[in-house]
């Protein structure tokens, strides 16, 4: 896989990762995404990892890094569609991805972005935002 396509839907950038990423593709994606956030002035980034079956600590860190970068550029990142096996692996690896917001699927992710939410769901008392 050379490049992960980044789609723009109104003021949301959608990254759908198909298949497993190698380290090079991860680095490319991070750079591309930062460029696109700046270029489009997007308010939210949704990373769809429904198709990702295997993760390692590098990919786990990538998610945190992207979230951090996007926040610097005033965009919020939501990771959607994480598979159970992937979630278990990340927990076993000790990566809790603090500061990252997650949603079960793309639809819920978009709904989460459209609600105003001050703090990330992973670190708060898991009250859904905007209540």
């Amino acid at each position: 896989m050379d490049r992960v396509p980044i789609l723009k839907i109104s003021d949301i950038l959608l990254v759908s990762i198909q298949g497993d990423l190698d380290d090079h593709a991860v680095l490319t994606l991070q750079e591309d995404l930062a460029d696109r956030v700046v270029a489009t002035g997007a308010l939210g980034v949704i990373i769809d990892i429904t198709a990702v079956e295997i993760v390692d600590s590098f990919v786990g860190r990538m998610l945190s890094t992207i979230a951090g970068m996007a926040r610097m550029l005033d965009a919020e990142t939501i990771v959607v569609g994480m598979r159970p096996a992937v979630a278990i692996t990340l927990v076993e690896l000790g990566l809790s991805l603090g500061g990252l917001r997650t949603a079960l699927d793309l639809e819920k992710g978009i709904a989460l972005l459209s609600r105003p939410g001050p703090e990330p769901a992973v670190t708060d008392d898991m009250s859904p935002v905007g209540q």
Binding site: M82, L90, L104
Partner: peptide, 14 residues
């Protein structure tokens, strides 16, 4: 705790 963390990563609340 691990179960709760994994569920959170998937976007659910425990």
């Amino acid at each position: 705790l691990k179960t709760v963390m994994a569920a959170r990563l998937m976007g659910a609340h425990c």
